[in-house]
Design a protein around this nucleic acid. Structure first.
Lengths: 200, 200
DNA sequence: TCATAAACCGAGCGCGCGGTCTAATATTGG
DNA sequence: CCAATATTAGACCGCGCGCTCGGTTTATGA
């Protein structure tokens, strides 16, 4: 062979394209974003785009594949924390931190809409979701065993509804840009307290 | 004048088109639904479609304009109920009843995605949402005054988060078709109980 | 240096889209 | 039955789309 590919450079370029595309998808939605838009945003030609990705859909999917690793990492650090209550709060804080990035929230909305119609993509999104749900359930479970929590729900239900509450906050933030984010986060924390019943 | 229009027939046809279009939008999303699809579903030609609506977007918007009246009616009947707790439960039951109609849930998702990108449409969706939120807050307020509720949140916050919880349940149902709906509804009711603290 | 594969470009293809237009037909009041 | 208007049909248009393809440039190992 006379030339080997540098996998790092390749991956870096892929990620650059994904980042540029994410901005487009967030602004205009999947269907209204043209491949030409992505090329412009990424500063490449259509030939290059389709050199890195087989289709527009693959670009969209790629964005969320990258998320999986990030979420795993987030959960791992939360699990390592001494206090499960702090762990839950950290996860929730991180999940809700996207509120101030309207683009991210729109992407999530767009993903939900696409997942409703694309079974394969649905599976990806759901696996990300499951990760958070079972991860949180695990945290809750641990808290129960150590006596830190006395929740009103089973650990599984608690995990599910914590994620649900976060999702609800995000989607409302996207609908209502004047939302008092700090206040709603405080209310969310109250609700979490009520659900998990952490001891003082 | 030599000919008057029959407004009832006109409105009926409009509604028929809206119903047909709603099915298309739910199945394929706004962008992927072509005007030809709508025509086929409604059994009309494109000439007729654009006689009743100026654009594809107007068809989409029309679907949700019809919802407003429905929601007002729902709230009105809830307010008339003697027990505010029953009123809240009735509203929540009605809002969550859409779970078993996957099409409706998908439409809601699609609307959320569109509203993120279309300020005028956003206003419509948000006004529907506000209606429910202040309506529920009013119910809670009444319950507080009559001593029926002793909520952990202000009536406004309670209204907001009740709607948020319902939204969360709907969007999760769309992601996970195997969801145990009855169970989640029961959990939702537990949460409501905890939030509102209805006296026995 | 030079052969070779990776990376990249951008013109262009075929297609399906939202919407228009003209003409034909149905429906009404007089 | 006529005049006037509402309703309908469907061929049609221009545009922008996702993606392909042939060719050029760039980087690298021998």
């Amino acid at each position: 062979m006379v030339r080997t590919v540098d996998p790092d450079k390749h991956a870096a370029k892929r990620r650059a394209i994904l980042d540029a595309a994410a901005g487009c998808f967030a602004r205009d939605g999947f269907e209204k974003t043209s491949t030409a838009d992505i090329c412009r945003a990424a500063g490449i030609s259509s030939g290059s785009l389709f050199h890195y990705f087989p289709s527009k859909r693959a670009v969209f999917v790629g964005i969320f594949e990258a998320d999986t690793a990030e979420n795993e990492e987030l959960l791992a650090t939360a699990v390592e924390m001494a206090d499960p209550w702090e762990g839950v709060l950290a996860v929730v804080a991180r999940m809700t931190s996207a509120i101030v990035l309207p683009g991210v929230v729109r992407l999530i909305l767009e993903a939900a809409a696409q997942a409703a119609r694309d079974p394969e993509f649905n599976e990806l999104i759901r696996s990300n979701d499951d990760l958070m749900r079972v991860g949180l359930a695990g945290l809750v479970e641990r808290g129960i065993h150590t006596g830190r929590f006395s929740p009103m729900l089973s650990s599984a239900d608690a995990g599910n509804w914590i994620v649900a509450l976060v999702d609800a906050l995000l989607s409302r933030a996207s609908l209502d840009p004047d939302l008092d984010v700090e206040h709603e986060q405080a209310v969310l924390r109250q609700l979490l307290t009520r659900i998990l019943g952490p001891s003082e």
